[in-house]
Amino acid sequence: MSREKILAAVKANQFTSAELPDLNVLASLTATDANLVEKYTAIASAGGSFVYEVADLEAIKTILQKEFKPGVQVISGVAGLTDYTDAASVVHELSHSFANVELTILQSNLGVAENGALWLTEEQMHIRVLPFIAQHLAIVIDKNNFVPTMAQAYEKIGDARYGYGAFISGPSKTADIEQSLVIGAHGPRSLSVFIIT
């Protein structure tokens, strides 16, 4: 059987053990908690995200009303943003029908200042394809939920169990044609981030 064959070949060719490095030095070097929202906003905006600092959920609704035409399909997974189709009420068997969703709004509880990435697990997505298939994506996050770098992000994630999770750092994009950046490859054409202050 190939499994045994491969493992035996690997074992035979492994060399003397090398220790894992200490990650604490790196983590401590980057653990600067100053101006995280500001840093996040600068990086995320440069990556093509629209970042809004808002006082509450009402403010988000107002912005969305301006940005999206009435009548388009919007799915919300954010507790408190209830004017839209509730993400908890849809099932993944219907994933293919979400191709017509104009906007998905989801919650994140972890943002990374150094790269503009927001962490969402399946629990917050409700259905895995939702943040990808919608034409536009909005993510809501509290201003206190930012960390400086990926080192702290994984400290925070720890040994959490999830079926699926993703860091999302902007709208879907590509530069495959002559390195010209085009926003809106296969996934959302825009990412709006609402930071609750």
Binding site: I43, G116, G163, G165, A166, S169
Partner: peptide
Amino acid sequence: ATGQPITTYSSHFSKPQAG
């Protein structure tokens, strides 16, 4: 790779979706 701070999506697959 490209000078971006991270890719747009870094997807962690742990379990299959139901069914």
